[in-house]
Design a protein around this nucleic acid. Structure first.
Lengths: 193, 193
DNA sequence: CGGTCCCATTGACATATGTCAAGAGAATGC
DNA sequence: GCATTCTCTTGACATATGTCAATGGGACCG
């Protein structure tokens, strides 16, 4: 199972045998049941985890509203980026939406990897660059003008998530409320007949 | 003037004399007059530039609307991140809002720095991590519920920009139109009397 | 099997924001 | 120095989305 992580890292940059060994030594497998809160607001996020199986969402609460910031399924990294990078308490929750199996590495272990294996910084850099691009892309959804365009964008970019996530969570991800999304959907799919 | 760049990089990670020398060799100073388009939609962004003096904004056009994605002033990096990282044509324009002086390094030179100086990846990683956090923060503006909250957030986080940027550009940055911003401001500042 | 919860939909209505138009003032250019 | 833009504001009105409430269908659980 650890192979999934090694594969992913290898695609960023080839891992030496020594580095591979060290990663094996510090990576741990965890499974969260559906509904589990993996990280809470106010905590420092001290690990980064690859999703092997399952699905989670990150969200935060602002003025009493639950706002979904990200969905993370197989192949993606679960962490609360700002809290992780700055090692300060963050405002994000992370919640398992399905039973979710993760390979986790602690922040301090990752920092040691950076200092002990300079080439691991290449991987860290490319991962951060990738995450950055994804973040910019997510932002573009919120800049769409109408609810319908946001929904269309979601359909085009996350077709599989639609079956796995409640519409309420999708709605808060798209910056609208549940009822609006429901109406947009009925109008949108009616036209397709 | 190059010192500003070296200072910034040094704060991420100490630069060896050799690395410092190489950076000096590849960095170039450029000045754009106000109104200049530094990058156009459809181009590949092949450099990253530190703003020494001046101010620019990146924007893109979607369904005929001009949407500001970022403001970049002194100390910040000007580049079109997705296009830069992927080296694919992007959809962003970058426009100098004031006369703007930059220290630029070409993408290929940066890549050579990564391969020739492994520790330069530490700097690249930390810069990407920082940019990622900034991107997440920008996104939070768009998730605010009302126009007034968005404006308040902008006031708190970019107080100096208000004097340097037209309200129209701020409005598109905040995901509202010019008139709405104007009304929010008059209501908001009236209360302060 | 019946009760309870959660999810999604729909209706009626309220309201925030967008749109279109006009105008005043400042900045810019010939 | 005058004309021309541009910026910002304001008004009247249109409309998209939010809010509140009710309903029906599943899923889950005792």
């Amino acid at each position: 199972m650890l192979e999934a992580l090694l594969d992913k890292l290898n695609k960023f940059h080839p891992l030496s045998p020594e580095l591979t060994e060290r990663i094996r030594a510090v990576a741990t497998l965890v499974t969260h049941p559906a509904g589990d809160i993996i990280l809470r607001e106010g905590q420092v996020c001290n690990k980064a985890c690859l999703v092997i199986k399952g699905l989670a969402r990150s969200y935060y609460i602002i003025e009493g509203r639950d706002i979904t910031s990200r969905f993370m399924d197989e192949g993606f990294i679960i962490t609360s980026w700002i809290s992780y990078y700055t090692q300060q308490p963050g405002n994000e929750f992370i919640e398992a939406l399905e039973e979710t199996t993760l390979i986790c590495i602690h922040y301090t272990d990752i920092q040691k990897l950076y200092t002990d294996f300079p080439e691991f910084n290449i991987i860290g850099r490319k991962q951060a660059e990738y995450g950055f691009c994804m973040a910019e892309q997510r932002t573009q959804i919120l800049r769409k003008h109408t609810a319908e365009e946001k929904y269309k964008f979601f359909l085009d970019n996350h077709p599989t998530l639609l079956q796995r996530v409640t519409l309420k969570n999708i709605a808060t991800y798209l910056g609208m409320n549940e009822e609006t999304l429901s109406r947009v959907r009925s109008k949108f799919h009616k036209r397709k007949d």
